[in-house]
């Protein structure tokens, strides 16, 4: 005799990928819209997750709606695979999806990151998911979000340029360190999340897809593959990445990659590669992929970065 319990599905604690099917479907639709309108901030219904808002919930929801059993996931926090936050997110994603994990940039199909883009050039078919604390590049010039919305709609970005003007007048250089405002596909200005200036050029004409998602602010946006991304710069004062000339990694001996500075007790500093996955391969003498910046510090996209100019006032 058939009982009711025979007919019912076996009990599951969670849906596949933690979020229910409707939530994932909504996220996927928002992602498609974001890809269709590069740089445009698409609102979405940010779900409750077992981690607190502000700890990567935006990135996590995108990852969970994309991940499948065949995926290979890498999670980094400020370049490191082994930070507590990255490790927890990685464990949660695999537990909920059965996906494989890796620390190798080139092997990952989905790469969720906080505040860095890896050193090795990402490839077609890869998705980079950036966690975004504040998606609104105009927040510095207007506190009124509905006004900011209209400014985006009108491409009325004069005030953003005014911020740069003020920096040049006061400091004779652009001093915005991270989240450097950038124009996507010639239309919308985005905050590329708090990646260092060093990483911003990597978004330009990239082979991979970049998805940027803010869980607390409930908005996501995208830089599709092979899309123009230009940091804001005056025509006579080019944008510059961080000057780390002469900084050598204490573990691997490489330079001209983005470094963490380790202050020493004697007042000097030592440096180590910020990208731990890349460092790991170097230490193990494994083959590494092409990097965005070569050993001389030249960017792989010719002519994109220009020599520094100090403006006269």
């Amino acid at each position: 005799m058939t009982t009711l319990s025979d007919l019912a599905q076996p009990r599951q604690d969670y849906s596949y990928g933690f979020m229910d099917a409707y939530a994932k479907r909504e996220l996927r639709r928002r992602i498609l819209k974001a890809i269709a309108i590069p740089g445009y901030q698409v609102p979405y219904a940010s779900r409750e997750l077992p981690i607190a808002r502000g700890w990567g919930t935006g990135g996590l929801q995108v990852t969970l709606s994309l991940v499948g059993p065949e995926s290979v996931v890498k999670v980094i926090d400020q370049g490191a695979d082994d930070s507590v936050n990255a490790a927890n997110l990685r464990r949660f994603i695999t537990r909920m999806s059965g996906a494989e994990t890796t620390t190798d940039t080139l092997k990952a199909t989905i790469l969720q990151s906080r505040h860095r883009i890896p050193e090795e050039v990402m490839q077609e078919g890869q998705a980079l998911v950036l966690q975004v604390p504040d998606p609104e590049p105009l927040r510095g010039v207007t506190a009124d979000m509905s006004k900011a919305h209209q400014l985006h709609a009108d491409s009325d970005y004069g005030q953003m340029w005014l911020l740069l003007y003020e920096q040049l007048v006061r400091y004779r250089q652009y001093i915005q360190g991270a989240s450097y405002p950038s124009l996507v596909n010639g239309l919308y200005i985005i905050s590329p999340s708090p990646i260092p200036r060093w990483d911003t050029p990597k978004l330009h004409q990239a082979a991979h897809l970049t998805l940027l998602s803010a869980g607390r602010e409930k908005r996501l946006y995208a830089v599709p593959p092979y899309t123009d991304v230009y940091p804001l710069e005056f025509s006579d004062v080019p944008f510059q990445v961080e000057d780390q000339q002469g900084w050598v990694c204490k573990t691997t001996g490489v330079q001209n990659k983005f470094m963490n500075e380790l202050p020493q007790e004697d007042g000097t500093s030592q440096y180590e590669l910020s990208d731990s996955g890349y460092a790991e391969k170097l230490v193990k003498n494994e083959a590494v992929g092409a990097t965005y910046y070569d050993d001389q510090g030249d960017f792989y996209y010719d002519g994109y970065l220009k020599p520094p100019v100090q403006p006269s006032l």
Binding site: D156, G158, Q159, W161, L162, Y165, E166, L168, V169, R170, F234, S235, D236, V237, P311, S312
Partner: peptide
């Protein structure tokens, strides 16, 4: 804008019209 430079307040008008050369501003 009371906290921005005076020159920036003036330059903003040109920025709005698309002027992107610092020396010109």
């Amino acid at each position: 804008r009371m906290r921005f430079t005076s020159s920036g307040n003036v330059a903003e008008r040109l920025l709005i019209t698309g002027e992107r050369t610092f020396a010109t501003l």
